[in-house]
């Protein structure tokens, strides 16, 4: 028996806004603990991990572990048809994922399950010297400030500030955010803004957002739901100076 019911489909929708812009296909794994997926884009620049705990769902029936391979673009088209006050139900029938939204009207979509073309490695664990929290809206606005001058951004964290800096052909920009965390080391790394914007498409997911950084290390952006009921995290490879 496999049936998941979520009274707030926006968690799913906002996760897949980002996931579908990064990867073409994903394997969604569901077992008695919850739902999770790991995926990496074809160029191996961005890794994404989604975890939704069993207790986040209003109904969670999953008698045996199941793997659902889906085309993210197709699933996103369906999720876009949900309204925030709809109740979402996921079931499986034969070779399809059945997605139902029920509000004023009831809509049922059958999304064909696919064969995956490649395997996704397990989530890497990286030790970071620096970790801060930042409201995701603040991060988004800062990136919007930076992107008017350049297509890459330097993240620089010291004991007081997160600074985002860019040097453009015609203009330079710098945004400073007083992070208020205990930071004992400095960290600096450069990233492509295009990739950061893909991750920020999930902005509505988050209650709390963490940035982990080290010198020329990947950026880890973690969006966490209240009571750790869910987590969406991204790992973005840096650009480095030759």
């Amino acid at each position: 028996m496999f049936k998941l019911i979520l009274s707030d489909p926006s968690i799913f929708k906002t996760s897949f806004e980002a996931i579908s812009s990064i990867v073409d296909e994903v394997q969604i794994e569901v077992d008695s603990d919850g739902l999770r997926l790991n995926a990496i884009d074809r160029s191996h620049i961005t890794y994404v991990h989604l975890e939704l705990k069993e207790r986040l769902f209003d109904v969670f029936q999953c008698d045996e572990p199941i793997k659902l391979n889906v085309d993210t673009e197709e699933l996103m088209k369906v999720l876009k048809r949900s309204k925030s006050d709809d109740v979402m139900e996921l079931t499986v029938d034969g070779g399809s994922l059945i997605v139902t939204f029920e509000g004023a009207i009831k809509k049922t979509f059958k999304v064909k399950l696919i064969d995956l073309e490649y395997e996704t490695p397990e989530s890497p664990s990286i030790e970071y010297p620096v970790k801060i929290t930042i409201p995701i809206k603040t991060l988004k606005e800062s990136i919007q400030d930076i992107e008017i001058v350049a297509d890459r951004v330097e993240f620089n964290i010291d004991q007081d500030f997160l600074k985002l800096k860019a040097v453009g052909e015609f203009s330079d920009a710098e945004v400073e955010y007083l992070h208020g965390e205990k930071v004992t080391e400095d960290a600096r790394a450069i990233f492509a803004i295009e990739n950061i914007k893909e991750m920020l498409k999930a902005e509505k997911f988050a209650d709390t957002t963490y940035i982990s950084l080290g010198d020329d290390m990947p950026l880890t952006l973690t969006l966490e739901l209240l009571n750790e009921e869910g987590e969406l995290s991204f790992l973005l490879a840096p650009r480095i100076e030759e």
């Binding site: 990496i40 191996h44 890497p124 450069i190 990947p218 490879a237 840096p238 650009r239 100076e241 030759e242």
Partner: peptide, 11 residues
């Protein structure tokens, strides 16, 4: 000069 790295070295 800058270049884009990949995540391969972290797996």
């Amino acid at each position: 000069k800058q270049r884009q790295t990949t995540l391969d070295m972290f797996f």
